[in-house]
Structures are given as structure tokens and as C-alpha cells.
Design a protein around this nucleic acid. Structure first.
Lengths: 207, 207
DNA sequence: ATAGCATTGACCGGTACGGTTAACGGAGAG
DNA sequence: CTCTCCGTTAACCGTACCGGTCAATGCTAT
């Protein structure tokens, strides 16, 4: 790719990223036209080809950028460092929301790219996947102290359930196509509070 | 559409439906080629055009069929009649799983069709939408007896949370592209059992 | 043998695609 | 004022594909 891309003003760079994420998230690789991406980014097709040699280069660049941005935002949020379960979920979701605010179609793009079957790109995508998989869930689970939660609860199940509920909540918004991040944050906070009242062991008065 | 379609063997009809659901769920209306659908259904493009006058007719037929099938399966499952919350969720999910087993891409197709923006079909889709919306959630909620659940719990929140978690669980499978319905059923049953242990008021011994 | 129907390969006009190129226009140096 | 960059684009090119048609093929049942 042409390094001149990086000399563009930040907002232009982001516009191109978002245009790419958007178009590639709506259709398969082969059926996502460069012209549409250029138009969505507010530049001419020729200029887009000036920055990226061809469609494949743009696609793989988007994929790498997507992964890089996500990891950056996640570590920056400190979600991995929190020892408290709800605190860590809070930080994680905060990071996710910040991401969605800046790159609304990043999530959907990542999903589609991961399962893209077009032989022109699928191999490259799969090759660069290994490094991005994280096994935080298992580690997080081991650190939990059963004494903090209501007696007899299946902690692993609780964790999966919470994960699914957040994803389901997110998915509802994604489906609807309206990215009202503030509403999402409100919903998620309500979820967190609800979980606390249900899952956490009630402290006896005066303890 | 050509009524001769209904004289086809059931499996052929279903193959065409699934082919249509699949292709239209992967791309926008305009970028979903009839040839691809025909190929996926195992028939020639010309024959597909023999049964459906044009692309639009096929699309709207798929949309109507999708809605009809869903309503049929839901009422048949008796999900709407159950008074017990978990029982009704169980029946509802059973219906959904049966549907997914038979028409793997029906759900995704419905979502895309609902938010399709192509002027050639969007109007017709929206027009025939009103009748399919259901407001069961609100009704279901009113029938719940707080005495059955742990004290002080926010029942509405509980309901939303359960709904999201089921959707999130489903979504995880859809994303993965592998429609292992049996695994899904196992996961969902586990969820149900978990919810019972957490949300239901514990019966004291001997009561 | 043939009438009737399901099914298809080949075709058509039009368009949309990835990618190229020659030219435009504005800013900055002399 | 002119010349030279260089970011930017409209216009173009060859090709592939799309929605839709049609004449022809085979198959079945009388």
C-alpha cells in the first residue's frame, strides 16, 4: 500500500476505513465494489486505487487494521487487568462501545472477514488469525472466588450466560441498523446492575 | 408465480426456498444473482425463471413464505399458550430450533429483508410487515407472579436478559456458520436450567 | 409415434466491475 | 507571471456477469 495514506488527515483515513468496513460488511468480498467504497469515503475511485494497489490489498489492510485497533482499545481499557468480574466486564464493554462509536461497522466486518470463503483472500485471513485469538475467558474464570456469589451457582454457566446476553443485546442493535451507542450503554449498565443484584452474595447487614 | 411450483416434490420446493434464503441472506437484494440461487437449488436458471416470473417475485415469495412458516411453527409449538414462563421459553426455542434445522438461513434472511433498502422491494416488504409483528412479550410479562421468583428481582429486566442471552447464544452459532442444532439445543437447555436455579424462589423443605 | 410438459444450454442487450491513464487544478518556488 | 509538482479526478477499457428469453432437448404417458 502507498505510505502516502498515512499523511492524510486523520478524519480522511478514518472515513476510508469506515467506508471499507461498511461495504465489506454488507456483501461478500467479491461483490463489494471499490467504487462503492470510494463513494462512501467521499473520494474518487482512482484515488482509492492510488492508495491501495488493488482490492485485495485494501481488504487485507482493513483486516489488519481492524485487529490492531481492537487489541489496542481493549488493552487500553484495562479490561484484562481488572480482578473484579463486573468491573472487568464494565471496562470491556466500555472499550467495545468506544470502538463502535468510532468504527460502527468494524464488528460486522470482522465477523464476515473471518468467515469469508473467497479463495483470493480467505487463506491470508486465516493465516493471520492465530495471533488474535484470546483465551481470557478461561483465565478470568479461575480467578473468581465462589464466596462472592450466591451459594451453589455454576460460575462457568453464569459467565457464558452474561457473555451471551451482552452479545444478544449488541446484536439487537446491529440488526436494527441504528447505532445509538448511548442507548446501548444504558442497556448494558442496566444489565450489569441486574446481574449484581442477582448473582452477588447478599452481604448481611453489619458485615 | 407459477402454481406448478407447488406440484414439485416437497424436497425440491424446500431446496429452492433454502437456496433463496441462503443467497439473499449473504448479499443485498441487488447483488444476489438468480443464477447462484438456481445453482444452490440444483436446478437451471431457466427453470427458476419458469417458476418465478422475475427476481422480485421470487424475493417477495420468499419473504411471505418466511413469515408464514415462522408463524405456523410458533403457534404449532404452543409457545403462546403456556402460562409457565420457562415452559413457554422452552417451547418457543424448540420451535425456533425446528425451524433452523429445516431452513438454516431463514432467520438471517428475515433480518436482511426487513432492513433491505433497495427501492425495488423495500416498499413491499414494509407494507406486509405490520401483520407479523407480535407484542407477546408485554402480555407474557403481566402474567408472571412475583411470588414465584427470588424476592426483589426486576422481572422485566430478567425477561429482557433471558431474551438477549438466547439471542446471543444463537448468534454465536450463526456467526460460526456451523448449524449444529443439537449442540444449540444442549446449550439452550443448560441456560434454562441455570435460570431456574438462579431466578426461581427456592422452595423451603417440606412446603 | 406423438403430444405435452419439464428442463436446459445458449444467447442477448445492458451494465457494473477492477484497474489504467491522461489530464486538470491549485499551491509553492523561482 | 511561469513552471513544476502532485493530489485528484473524469473518462476510458476490456471483461465478466446479470436478468430475462427462447428454441431445442429429452422424458413420459397414452
Amino acid at each position: 500500500m502507498n505510505p502516502k495514506y498515512y499523511t492524510l488527515p486523520q478524519e480522511k483515513q478514518q472515513a476510508i476505513l469506515n467506508a471499507g468496513f461498511h461495504v465489506f460488511s454488507q456483501n461478500t468480498y467479491k461483490k463489494s465494489p471499490m467504487s462503492e467504497i470510494a463513494e462512501a469515503a467521499g473520494i474518487s475511485k482512482a484515488l482509492l486505487f492510488h492508495y491501495f494497489r488493488n482490492k485485495k490489498e485494501l481488504y487485507l489492510f482493513l483486516w489488519d487494521t481492524c485487529a490492531r485497533i481492537t487489541v489496542e482499545e481493549m488493552t487500553r481499557s484495562g479490561a484484562y487487568e481488572q480482578t473484579d468480574l463486573f468491573g472487568s466486564m464494565d471496562h470491556g464493554m466500555q472499550a467495545k462501545l468506544r470502538l463502535m462509536r468510532k468504527y460502527p461497522d468494524l464488528g460486522m466486518f470482522a465477523v464476515r472477514a473471518f468467515y469469508e470463503k473467497d479463495p483470493e483472500v480467505s487463506a491470508d485471513i486465516q493465516k493471520s488469525m492465530g495471533q488474535y485469538l484470546n483465551a481470557h475467558a478461561a483465565k478470568k474464570l479461575q480467578k473468581l472466588d465462589p464466596e462472592d456469589f450466591i451459594p451453589g451457582i455454576d460460575l462457568q454457566m453464569m459467565y457464558r450466560e452474561m457473555y451471551w446476553a451482552s452479545e444478544g443485546c449488541l446484536w439487537e442493535y446491529i440488526q436494527r441498523g441504528i447505532m445509538d451507542i448511548d442507548a446501548m450503554e444504558k442497556d448494558f449498565r442496566a444489565l450489569l446492575e441486574f446481574w449484581k443484584t442477582v448473582y452477588l452474595r447478599k452481604e448481611r447487614e453489619g458485615v
